[in-house]
Design a protein around this nucleic acid. Structure first.
Length: 648
DNA sequence: GTAGGGTTAG
């Protein structure tokens, strides 16, 4: 007998134990499916086979596809909901969105039209959960309608699934109404609602429910899942004292102290700003998981302790994609783009596959470094590996092209990506503004508003800087007041400095000064710098001196401002004052701080500081620099001659 | 059978 056929017989007889059954399925899936379809298997056997496929590795799409294939090609439809339920369960866990989208509803229709099988109380929890992940929300709502019609509205599992559906898809109020009106509530009902509030960014509502449940005398007791929800909500609020109280609750109220709960507590301490407390929890976990380690990496990265983050990363026994992404994100957040890219190259040598989040981090690193070639390579990589183009990834691409100097490509990508949100539009507006396309930036802003998207603080930095670059004083004034009056956005330092720069350049020095005085925060060096620049440009020595003094106050070691002040005096023919500043500078011993610049060549980023001789090709570089300097002098002379010629 | 912890954009 052919081995797979023998296997079928064995399986028919129920002679294979479940673990071996699973292995055999993996090895002989194709033969089994074809063998089964050509034989006359009994219904219970088909049920078992479908269920076994559906229950195996949820991360892999293959077993699920086998299960669906069997269901679709049976000579006569199954007479119970059991195999369908198993398939719905697999769909509800399936990480591949397109499979859920393609198969969920056809499968439900097949069940409804099968003749003998009817959806039962096990069907809906899985089906509804799968529906929560569908692109089209109306399907889920229709299924919930069936639930009512078929009389499952009082089944607590079904109600909980429905609450989960609304808490994922919104509005949260629908989940709440089900909770309030449901005749039956168990701990999962509470946990679902609490989790839903946390997911929707409503931690206060979550905590309110938690304390209500935690009151003594309740029939339902909070369990560790409840506390995970409460602790996550607390993490969102950043309330350390509340966090400590919740941590104590675990010890006092006999909640099971699982690794998952301790991980949530660690995460809460990190987000509430106490790395020490997070670390003390971490030290006490005996069976740490990858999540525990990743949380600590994130905790150190948030405080800029990237060397410690790296040590934790190296110490981890096993690394999935999360710690790689967390460390890379840490480098990006701490403006260490080079290290982020180096880590990616390390990652490629390891066995871990990058995902779209890796790409988002990588693109941010490219934007920071202006590394266009690397950025384009990432774009290509995303296409080649068919990574999901999420809004975040699309936005990162747009931003990378804009920041790396290719605004045309940024616009192109912006038009091609499937979904744009307020952040994507903002990125485009800022990119256009930085490239000097003020009119387009403002046009994009208008289109964004017409689409009903909410601009935020950064969107307004984009339009204001567009106005600034183009000298659009009136438009700038309007945006500046609009952001406060209409959009109720807080005007930050950056908005004020932009506005003061705009007013100052246009010669509205009084208005600029008034704005500086009216600012709700202490003006920073950028604000005074903009005012100083405007004063120098328009010859307002008195106000210029005031601005310069403020700049010296803010950073006495910054030599630049002394030079600029001396220059301003010199330009105004105030020789004595100019000399005085130069003497003062020598007395104070201020020196110029070396600046750093970098350049990307063939995908490698090279860094340079002033008078840097450390590069391998230093001689060639300085020869080239010398040559360029000579050429520039030559051109400058030519321009000088032609300009003085035109004046004669 | 339902709920739950770690990585992401401007």
């Amino acid at each position: 007998m052919h081995p797979p056929s023998r296997l079928l017989v064995l399986l028919h007889a129920g002679a294979v134990h479940p673990p071996s059954f699973r292995v055999l399925l993996k090895l002989h899936a194709h033969h089994l499916v074809s063998g089964l379809l050509s034989s006359h298997s009994t219904s219970p056997f088909i049920d078992r086979l479908v269920a076994a496929f559906a229950h195996s590795d949820p991360a892999s799409p293959r077993p699920l596809l086998h299960a669906l294939a069997i269901l679709a090609s049976l000579p006569s439809p199954p007479d119970s909901a059991f195999p369908y339920n198993a398939a719905f369960r697999a769909l509800s866990l399936c990480p591949h969105q397109h499979l859920v989208d393609r198969h969920c509803l056809p499968l439900y229709r097949a069940l409804l039209h099968s003749g003998s099988a009817r959806p039962d109380h096990l069907t809906f929890p899985f089906l509804i959960k799968a529906c929560a992940r569908l692109q089209y929300r109306s399907y889920g709502a229709a299924v919930l309608g069936h639930v009512q019609k078929l009389g499952f509205s009082a089944d607590v599992f079904v109600v909980n699934a429905a609450m989960h559906f609304w808490s994922v898809r919104g509005p949260m109020a629908f989940a709440r109404r089900l909770f309030d009106e449901s005749p039956v509530r168990d701990v999962v009902s509470w946990n679902t609602l609490i989790g839903g509030y946390v997911r929707s960014g409503l931690p206060r509502e979550a905590l309110e429910l938690f304390w209500r449940l935690a009151e003594d005398g309740n029939a339902v007791r909070p369990d560790e899942v409840t506390v995970i929800g409460a602790v996550s909500g607390c993490a969102q609020m950043g309330d350390l004292e509340l966090g400590k109280r919740l941590h104590e609750f675990v010890d006092n109220k006999g909640v099971r102290c699982t690794v998952r709960l301790m991980n949530a507590v660690m995460d809460m301490y990190v987000k509430c700003g106490s790395l020490e407390l997070a670390n003390s929890v971490f030290e006490r976990i005996s069976n740490r998981t990858a999540v525990s380690w990743t949380t600590m990496i994130v905790g150190h990265a948030r405080l800029g302790m990237m060397e410690d983050a790296r040590m934790l990363f190296d110490e981890m026994p096993e690394r999935d994609v999360f710690p790689w992404n967390a460390l890379m994100a840490g480098y990006v957040q701490n403006k260490q783009g080079k290290e982020a890219i180096a880590l990616f190259h390390e990652m490629q040598k390891s066995k871990v596959d990058p995902n779209e989040i890796t790409m988002v981090n990588l693109l941010s690193a490219c934007s920071q470094l202006g590394a266009l070639e690397m950025g384009m390579w990432v774009h290509h990589y995303i296409d080649r590996h068919k990574l999901h183009l999420s809004v975040a990834l699309g936005t990162s691409l747009v931003d990378m092209y804009a920041k790396c100097g290719n605004i045309k490509k940024a616009i192109c990508v912006f038009n091609e990506i499937p979904v744009q949100n307020a952040l994507t539009w903002t990125s485009m507006i800022c990119g256009l503004a930085n490239h000097g396309h003020a009119d387009e930036a403002i046009e994009y802003f208008q289109r964004m508003i017409d689409l009903g998207l909410q601009p935020d603080e950064i969107t307004f930095i984009g339009v204001l800087s567009a106005c600034c670059h183009a000298g659009l004083v009136e438009a700038g004034r309007q945006f500046f007041s609009l952001m406060h009056a209409k959009y109720h956005l807080e005007r930050k330092m950056k908005h004020y400095s932009c506005m003061i720069d705009l007013l100052g350049r246009a010669g509205h020095l009084d208005e600029a000064e008034q704005l500086v005085n009216a600012m709700p925060m202490d003006p920073d060096a950028v604000v005074w710098g903009a005012l100083f620049f405007a004063c120098r440009m328009h010859g307002n020595i008195t106000l210029g001196e005031k601005a310069a003094m403020k700049l010296v106050e803010l950073d006495p070691s910054d030599s630049g401002i002394y030079v600029l002040l001396a220059n301003m005096y010199a330009e105004a023919n105030m020789r004595k004052k100019a000399d005085k500043v130069r003497v003062m500078m020598r007395h104070l011993g201020v020196e110029k701080v070396p600046g750093c610049s970098c350049i990307e060549l063939n995908g490698v980023v090279h860094e340079f500081i002033v008078k840097d001789k450390s590069h391998l090709d230093t001689n060639a570089i300085y020869d080239c620099l010398h040559e360029i300097t000579l050429q520039m002098r030559h051109i400058a002379n030519l321009i000088d001659i032609s300009e003085s010629g035109s004046h004669i």
